[in-house]
């Protein structure tokens, strides 16, 4: 399962970004193992339409799970339509810690 986490920086030591569409980075990690990868969100500072475009980025990478704080009204239906499960993370930990919590089944599913 490929997990995407919104993050303030390009590595798992960085804190989780609470906003989805304007997250500076999207980090990816497979639950089956392998390395972390990251994509800079080129629309983080765009004029508008950031939610759907961020969703397109996450979908194109083939994520199955998304971990973030808040997801906007435009991105939400896109992520849901793509069949990606959303888990909410509202603490101030790092992306790596959020991933660990997800693996341990400690995160709340967003519905």
């Amino acid at each position: 399962m490929l997990v995407c986490i919104t993050s303030k920086g390009p590595t798992p030591e960085n804190p989780v970004e609470e906003r989805f569409g304007r997250s500076p980075y999207f980090l990816f990690k497979d639950t089956e193992g392998g390395d972390w990868s990251s994509v800079a969100n080129k629309f983080a500072d765009a004029a508008g339409g950031v939610g759907p475009r961020a969703a397109q980025t996450v979908i194109d990478k083939g994520a199955h799970v998304l971990i973030t704080g808040n997801i906007g009204g435009n991105a939400l239906p896109v992520i849901q339509a793509a069949g990606i499960e959303i888990y909410q993370y509202r603490d101030s930990g790092t992306a790596g810690e959020a991933f660990q919590k997800y693996v341990e089944g400690q995160l709340k599913k967003f519905s």
Partner: peptide, 13 residues
Amino acid sequence: QYGAIVVLKDRIM
């Protein structure tokens, strides 16, 4: 340029 179209595998939003 406005993020108004998202293309999924099976549909357009």
